[in-house]
């Protein structure tokens, strides 16, 4: 069976991009969880539909247009959120609905053969063009480089941004960069899991790792491991059962998350009982 899976050209071609996305998404998911940006990823992923709509109407390249939209939206939310009077939650909700509506209107005018709406909404990692792959690599390099550069300040900010600002560190700049990188990562995830399921890739890996890790690096490693297992096994299962790939991956990540929580509870109960 495994042999058959690897012999399939479609699957072999999907494996590379999917792995790349898994690595980037799980790494960024640590920051998403630390900064509680889960809802932001949902908002931004839906907002990319507006970008894709414009790209189709004006026949621009899809992934870069979507990436620019996502980064712009994420930055906008990053600027709005610290200001008083506008709740980040509400701002995200407004943008989410507005951009999605705009995207649907724009795409409705397009030729039905030009747009794979189902693919946009639920992911189509099995159909990556060489152009897609090029942009995926560019995005990954950018996201991972920023992460290597800024993981420590980002992690520290999630803990106590006020003290960091009082040390003279450029916390606002760090925050905007984080939002931009999250926006970029969202677009890459849309390729695998689609607009609707992207948040799963950007929340579940770190959420599964959160209970087990004892610091940035252990959480990062566990999250990476969870994400790779979920993606590889997910692709395999989707091939075997003929399920949609993005949804299968997210479903598997959910399963890992639930198992991780239950195991953690059991282990801790046993430990607690031993202490008594």
């Amino acid at each position: 069976m495994m042999h058959e899976f690897l012999a399939s050209v479609v699957m072999r071609e999907a494996l590379g991009p999917a792995t790349l996305i898994a690595v980037v998404a799980s790494s960024i998911s640590v920051m998403v969880l630390a900064h509680r940006l889960a809802f932001l990823t949902v908002g931004v992923s839906h907002a990319t539909l507006a970008g894709l709509g414009f790209a189709v109407v004006f026949s621009l390249p899809l992934l870069p247009s979507a990436a620019l939209t996502a980064i712009a939206v994420a930055l906008m939310l990053g600027v709005v959120s610290p200001k008083r009077g506008m709740n980040e939650d509400a701002a995200t909700g407004v943008l989410f609905a507005g951009a999605m509506a705009l995207g649907i209107v724009l795409l409705s005018g397009a030729n039905r053969h030009e747009v794979d709406l189902f693919g946009l909404l639920f992911g189509n990692i099995l159909m990556t063009s060489s152009e897609d792959r090029f942009w995926l690599v560019c995005g990954s390099v950018l996201a991972m480089t920023s992460l290597i550069w800024l993981a420590k300040p980002w992690w520290g900010m999630a803990f106590d941004a006020v003290s960091m600002r009082a040390m003279g560190l450029p916390v606002r700049r760090y925050r905007l960069l984080l939002y931009a990188v999250v926006g970029l990562t969202v677009v890459m995830c849309v390729k695998l899991a689609g607009i609707v399921l992207t948040a799963g890739l950007l929340v579940l890996p770190a959420a599964s790792a959160w209970l087990w890790g004892r610091g940035l690096f252990s959480i990062w490693l566990i999250s990476l491991f969870v994400s790779l297992i979920g993606t590889w096994v997910g692709l395999y299962v989707s091939y075997m059962l003929d399920w949609p790939s993005g949804a299968t991956v997210v479903l598997l990540l959910c399963a890992i998350f639930i198992v991780s929580r239950i195991t953690h509870r059991l282990v801790h109960h046993r430990e607690a009982r031993r202490h008594h």
């Binding site: 630390a34 290597i148 550069w149 800024l150 993981a151 420590k152 300040p153 992690w155 520290g156 999630a158 803990f159 106590d160 006020v162 003290s163 960091m164 009082a166 040390m167 560190l169 959160w210 890790g213 004892r214 610091g215 959480i219």
Partner: peptide, 29 residues
């Protein structure tokens, strides 16, 4: 700063929390 609740949700060892008072704790990986 004044003590705040709800900022302690992150897994961090005491040693790392203390290290965050140093400028060198925020360099590249």
């Amino acid at each position: 700063p004044q003590r705040q609740e709800g900022m302690s949700g992150m897994p961090l060892r005491v040693r790392h929390v203390v290290a965050m008072g140093l400028d060198s704790a925020y360099g590249p990986l």
